[in-house]
Computed example of a mutant assay.
Amino acid sequence: MKRRNFIQHLCPALTVAQLALLSSCQEEAETVVPATSEDEKEFKRVSALFNDEGFLIEGKSVFVNLAHKNFSKLADISGFSNVLEAGILLIKTDNTTIKAFDNCCPHQGARASWVVVNGRFKCENHGNSYNTSEVNLVTCSSNSISGGLVRFPVTLYKTYLKVLKS
């Protein structure tokens, strides 16, 4: 009976400890913040203004029509799009999250030659890769060969995405 009592008291404690350890090790999932009524009005206003490429630049805001054929790669996780004219890289990181980054390479400022390898943007000019987790952020043309690309906040409304460049 002593063994049974020991196991009955120890097992629940071990289970709780294991769950606590697992939850602390998992990366916090990002949630998509629903668009506000003001965002909704803004998206309705700009929806008729998109260019033939499927996006609109208005001041520091970039609006993207995700239903446009130029952004079809964003339907898949790890799919990305480089919007050169707007200066942004877009990547779909999970079923509900699209992240936006400065498309200027921190090493020497290249903008056109990106690929995604293991969830990181790799500049094909010199082979440097940059994370998308906002760790050790490095800015455009800072001669950095590693670190994280600068991320811009996004708002999603139906099939429209708004990127607010800083």
Rank of each mutant, 00 (worst) to 15 (best):
I88E: 01
K92Y: 04
V150Q: 13
T139G: 01
L137V: 14
S129D: 15
N103F: 08
N143L: 13
N82D: 12
H126E: 07
T159L: 05
G127V: 03
R111Q: 14
Y160I: 03
Y157M: 03
S37P: 01
A17T: 11
K2E: 10
L164N: 14
I88S: 01
G127M: 09
S81D: 06
V32Y: 01
D76G: 03
T15E: 04
S72M: 06
C140Y: 10
I91L: 15
C11L: 12
F55R: 08
E30H: 00
S144M: 01
F50V: 14
F71G: 05
N131H: 09
S23M: 11
V117G: 00
D39V: 00
E85I: 04
L19T: 07
C140M: 06
L84P: 00
N136R: 11
T97C: 02
C105E: 01
K158F: 03
N82Y: 06
F80S: 04
A112Q: 13
S72I: 09
L164A: 05
A110S: 12
M1E: 13
L56C: 02
E38S: 10
R3M: 06
D52F: 10
V154W: 06
V117D: 11
V46H: 02
F43G: 01
A112T: 12
W114A: 08
E28K: 15
L149Q: 12
E134G: 10
G119E: 08
P12I: 07
D102E: 10
A48L: 04
H9G: 15
N143W: 09
F55H: 13
P153T: 05
L89N: 01
Y160T: 03
S166R: 07
